[in-house]
């Protein structure tokens, strides 16, 4: 309930933040929404020496279209994603996932970028980003801007390729011409982590065949898992019930869930199969709709 003591700084400019990270990166935690970090600090599972609060930076809370990407900046809240007309128009998987992140109050503070950077394998956003081939944009004082493909960014549970000197400034997903996406989440109640989550994304060519596919899983592997084999099974084919069932079988085989109070490994694996089928079906409907 009561965190350990720490130092606190709340710079007004990005440059100040980057300076602090450059000088004392290892002992510093960046505080954006704080909805994962502060609970861990209250339970004393995390005890950073210094918190750098970036909430006073301006111009870092947009959700917009930039250079062929849908861009979500570091201080855009989950609730901003839920409400965003741009997201609703541009990316079905994100629009589908956003309302099921945490609960309404947490969504008002928590951020998409923070969630991705935290890389909790039970986090929903990382799967959506994997399915949509997102990129993470990070900045540092000495290295400038670095664009990291999401698959390279997410290293292992609670571990990313972000350097201690770097600040995540945005996460962005490529725009698509004809496509659709979806997020299926089995949660026991609002605010729960996913027992199983499946993000799907499909793009269609003019002939109606699948030109690009994304499938990624939440809570059923040591980290959020992009199922490349299942994606490849889809690409180049005309969508069909059989094809989706085959992709779902591949996804179910690829995951490696653990048995716990939320269910047996066998159960979770089967829900991955069910959700992948449902998600692909919904994605196709969105793409054709």
């Amino acid at each position: 309930m009561y965190p350990r003591a720490f130092d606190y700084v709340a710079p007004e400019t990005k440059q100040e933040v980057l300076d602090i990270l450059a000088e004392r990166g290892g002992e510093v935690k960046v505080l954006a929404g704080g909805q994962s970090l502060i609970p861990m600090m209250k339970l004393r599972f995390a005890s950073p020496g210094t918190l750098v609060d970036i909430n006073r930076l301006s111009g870092l809370d947009s959700i917009d279209i930039q250079n062929g990407h849908l861009r979500v900046q570091a201080l855009a809240r989950h609730s901003d994603v839920v409400r965003s007309d741009v997201v609703a128009a541009e990316n079905d998987a994100m629009a589908s996932a956003a309302p099921w992140i945490a609960d309404p109050l947490v969504r008002n503070l928590g951020t998409l970028c923070g969630s991705v950077a935290h890389h909790d394998p039970e986090g929903d956003w990382a799967s959506v980003m994997l399915a949509c081939d997102a990129e993470v944009v990070a900045e540092s004082r000495d290295g400038g801007e670095r664009v990291i493909p999401i698959a390279g960014f997410l290293v292992d549970m609670f571990t990313t390729s972000l350097q201690p000197t770097e600040l995540v400034t945005e996460v962005r997903v490529p725009r698509y011409r004809r496509g659709g996406g979806n997020y299926q989440k089995l949660e026991r109640k609002i605010g729960d982590y996913a027992t199983v989550g499946v993000a799907t994304h499909l793009e269609l060519d003019d002939a109606g065949s699948i030109s690009n596919a994304g499938i990624a899983l939440t809570s059923v592997y040591a980290h959020n898992l992009k199922v490349t084999d299942a994606e490849q099974a889809l690409v180049g084919n005309a969508p069909s019930v059989e094809l989706f069932a085959e992709a779902a079988r591949i996804a179910a085989a690829a995951c490696d869930p653990t048995s716990d109070v939320r269910g047996s490994a066998e159960y979770k694996r089967d829900v991955v199969r069910v959700f992948t089928e449902r998600g692909l079906t919904a994605s196709l409907a969105a793409a054709q709709g």
């Binding site: 606190y8 709340a10 505080l31 704080g34 909805q35 502060i38 609970p39 209250k42 918190l51 609060d53 909430n55 609960d103 309404p104 109050l105 947490v106 008002n108 503070l109 605010g191």
Partner: peptide, 24 residues
């Protein structure tokens, strides 16, 4: 950060005041 009984409005937006440092 599960129960919400600490909810206050921060600049008009409902947030959990147990998951926010006063300095923020």
């Amino acid at each position: 950060t599960s129960c919400g009984v600490c909810t206050v409005l921060l600049d008009g937006t409902p947030v959990k005041s147990c998951t926010l440092f006063a300095v923020q």
